[in-house]
Each structure stands twice: as C-alpha cells, then as structure tokens.
C-alpha cells in the first residue's frame, strides 16, 4: 500500500497542477460561454445564464465565416509549403557531409527566436517604402513598383502566411529528419541492385516509410497553426479591413478588446472543438506508431 502511494507521489503534483491550471480553466470556459458576461460581472461571476445565445451570435456573424475561411487558407498554405520545404531540407541535411549536423541545428534559430521578434523583422523587410523585399523584387525586375504588403487587403494574408511558413520550416525539417534517420539503409539495397531510379526509390520506399511521420507532423502543424496569435498581433492586428483576421485572434479580440467575453468564450470553444478533432487523430496515430510501453 505504501509502495503504491510512493509511485503516485511522483506523478501527482504534475497532474494536480495541470488539472487546476489547464483542465479547470477549460471547463470554466465552457461555463462562461453560456453566460451573459460584462466587465462588471466577469470576476464576481454572477452573470446570467443565457443558454446558447453566445453561440448563436457568433454563428450569425459574417466575420466569423470570413476569419474561418482565412484561417483555413493560412493553415493550408503554411502546412503544404513548410512541410514540402522541410522535406527537401531534411533530405539534404540527411546526407553525409562535413558540417551537416551543425547546419541542421543552426536552422532551428528560426523556430526559437520569439515570434514577436520574427514578426517585427518581417514587418521591416516587407515595409512598403524601404523594405528589402520590395527593393530586391524591383531591382531584379519582378515588380514594377513597390507593394505595401501588409497594408494592402490583397497581399496582407499572403505576407503573414509567408512569415508563418518561415517560422514553421525548422520544426518540419527536424521532425522529418528524425523520420528519415529511422529508415535503415539496407531497405534501399535490393532496389539499388535492381537498378531503381532515385525517383522510384523515393516514391516506393521513402515515401511509404515516411507516411506515419508526415501525418503526425501535419496533424501537429495543423493544431499549432490553428492557434497562431502572435504573428497576426504584431504584423497586422487582423487588418487591414479584417483581411488577416483568423479565428484565434478574433476570439481574443472579442474578449479582451471588445469585452464581449461570453462570445469570446463561445468562439474559442468552437475553435477548440475543431482542434480537438485533430488532437484525437494525433493521439491515435502516435499510439499506433509507438505503442505506449
């Protein structure tokens, strides 16, 4: 009996902590989403129960659908482009050459630099008047005149997506690299003897063996991209004219800038519902891949 308690004493503090500060707030958010909350009753907690009213308001709000569409676009392009580039880089740095280890790890700087700082740097590089990006593109002759990337409703979403792709590349690369390293070289031997081309080896050996890693990466990336906040906050604050508004930013804005707390809570629950779907997918994948010991 004592021994049993001793075993639990290792894990209990962490679990209790996560329950108080993660699980309880999560449940509390569901509670808040059914209430009519304003600044006066937010902390006191005597807000009236209004059923599904907050959800109805959100679902009848055109901005919700606009931001949802933009979130999907933002997430889709981030995932496709950063995973593709990540795969190319992982294959390249998986080759044996002097300095490859050092190079792979230095790439992680992009992932590690605070997003607020990366956002600021990209804002400067994309500056309409003096930004280096405009400068280069005009000099090379790809563009006739500079573009105000972040203040033009046609280009702002593209610009923040590119920034987010840049941020996501190192993570994709490292995860895919660990997958590639898990493939033993002998599996390629028969194909080499049979004279298979590089493309055939990639298509029929590497790709199938990498599918589990790629799918885990895509699910994780989807969850991470769906909750992106900092990039939008520092670069565009959802503008111009809501053209970079995404669900997670909108939810925060509703609560903390517009003080429509109940609706903010309802929207984050809707977002969580979408994320939870993919989270469950991820957990099942991970379990399948590496059977919990």
């Amino acid at each position: 009996m004592k021994k049993r308690f001793e075993n639990y004493s290792f894990v209990l503090p962490a679990i209790v902590f996560l329950m108080i500060f993660l699980l309880y707030p999560f449940a509390f958010n569901i509670y808040l989403s059914f209430r009519d909350i304003n600044i006066g009753n937010l902390v006191q907690g005597d807000s009236p129960f209004i059923g599904l009213e907050n959800y109805k308001t959100i679902l009848s709000e055109p901005l919700f659908y606009k931001s949802l569409t933009q979130t999907v676009i933002f997430t889709f392009f981030t995932l496709v482009v950063s995973t593709s580039i990540g795969f190319l880089l992982a294959s390249y740095f998986n080759k044996a050459f002097p300095g490859n280890k050092w190079m792979r790890s230095i790439m992680l700087l992009g992932w590690m630099t605070p997003i607020i700082i990366v956002g600021t740097i990209f804002k400067w590089m994309l500056d309409g008047k003096y930004g280096i990006v405009n400068n280069m593109l005009v000099n090379i002759g790809l563009m006739n005149s500079p573009i105000n990337w972040l203040s033009d409703i046609d280009t702002a979403l593209f610009a923040v997506t590119v920034t987010n792709i840049w941020l996501s590349i190192p993570f994709s690369m490292i995860i895919l690299l660990s997958g590639l390293q898990g493939i033993p070289t002998y599996v390629y031997e028969p194909a080499t003897i049979d004279g298979a081309s590089r493309w055939q080896k990639f298509r029929y050996i590497t790709l199938p063996l990498m599918t589990p890693t790629i799918s885990i990466l895509l699910i994780l990336g989807l969850i991470y991209t769906f909750k992106v906040f900092d990039v939008i906050y520092i670069m565009t604050a959802g503008g111009p004219a809501n053209s970079t508004q995404v669900v997670s930013y909108l939810a925060y804005e509703l609560s903390f800038n517009l003080f429509r707390f109940g609706e903010g809570a309802a929207l984050s629950n809707l977002a969580l519902f979408i994320i939870a779907f993919f989270a469950i997918l991820y957990v099942r994948k991970v379990q399948k891949e590496s059977v919990v010991h």
Binding site: V11, I15, L18, F21, L22, L23, Y24, P25, F26, F28, N29, L32, L42, V43, G45, I223, F226, K227, F229, S248, Y249, A251, Y252, S255, F256, F261, G264, A265, S268, N269, A271, L272, I275, A276, A279, I280, Y282, V283, V286, V292
Partner: peptide, 26 residues
C-alpha cells in the same frame, strides 16, 4: 495519464486566456 498529457498540450493558449484571467483575478 499519458493520453491526458498528449491532449492537454494541444489546448490553444488564447482559449485559456479568458478563464485564467478570471481565476487569476480572484
């Protein structure tokens, strides 16, 4: 417990900002 941890690591922080704000205020 492991599943629980796998799932909670994915909670979006902006979703917990409001309830945590209320709890921390108290």
């Amino acid at each position: 417990l492991i599943m629980f941890i796998l799932i909670v690591q994915m909670f979006p922080s902006n979703m917990l900002a409001l309830p945590l704000y209320t709890i921390f205020s108290k």
